[in-house]
Amino acid sequence: MMSNDPMYDDWINQRRAIDSPDGLADCVMATVQETEVRRKQSLLLRLAQRIEESRLARWTACMAAFLVGSSPFLYLAYVAQLLVF
């Protein structure tokens, strides 16, 4: 499809004559992936900021971490027959 501007038509014909580099598709895909990672990081960052703003959220995060991280002690108590499931 041709436009009415001869300068633009010349320019577009010159662009079409140039072969695209081999790595262009990889480059585009990597950029898309990077954008996705940045978006996810920004979500985590926003979540961290929200937690930092509230004392209750900070305590909740610490307690959740404690519950997960202390699971080996729970297993130890179970093995020592102090806990029965």
């Binding site: 937690i51 930092e52 995060a61 610490c62 959740a64 971490a65 404690f66 202390s70």
Partner: peptide
């Protein structure tokens, strides 16, 4: 270095 993050990480794993 955020103190509550340091504490949470340590609670997750000493």
């Amino acid at each position: 270095r955020v103190p509550w993050v340091a504490m949470s990480l340590s609670f997750l794993s000493a």
